[in-house]
Amino acid sequence: MVNPFYYLTKIYRMKFYGNIILLLIGNLLTNCVYSQPCINPVTSNCADAIAGTSEYIMTPDPCNVDFEFNDMQKYIAGITYSGSTRLRLKIDEIIAGDCKWRLMMYIDNNGYLPNNEWEPLVYYGASGTAPQLNLIQVKVYNGCGTPLNSGVYQIFAGNVNYDILEIIPALPDPRNLPGTCSGTQVNAPGSYLTDYNEYNFNIDYRILPGYSLRPGAYQIKINFCLVEVP
């Protein structure tokens, strides 16, 4: 006589493992599709900036930067927005001596194809070429010149979706500690409250469109990613 609960238990077990496998496949697929550069760190030496004591503040938030070319003078001279984004960091460590971080920005055209062009919202005319992602110029700087290429206008030279510009790159040990204001890329725990010029970042934006672009409204997103590094 077979126990009637035997088959029932077996069915439940099969469903359980089936669900687990489905979950795993889903997770793998999510990780594959999620190809954005801002990915989870593998260590937990720094305090969390969302639920923990670290802070990552952007002002204004939300931040929209609108370039409106409605006058010939603007086409000729371009439009510059100075200091329109500001990032302030307060990094606390959990494991003493092991907390390091990286700050970068990457460009996102909302998945528009071809992946080297701005996402068009509306067209005003038929002639001209589509603006490319390397059109926008970005300058990052602070009082101590800690960002990589501090104070220099840079473009997303890779000219492709998710192209990266490092602000504070992932650096090997030893960590660069704050307080020296020597222009080194400080990547250790610290705070904008005590070392303002090393944990505060100002960002300028500039566009020189030229005269060959197709009239219309276009959009991109620039993401600023703060992540711990081992």
Partner: peptide, 13 residues
């Protein structure tokens, strides 16, 4: 873990 992201939307008209 320390990871956070902020976004700036850039519109060009």
């Amino acid at each position: 873990q320390l990871i956070d992201e902020k976004n700036v939307t850039v519109t060009m008209d």
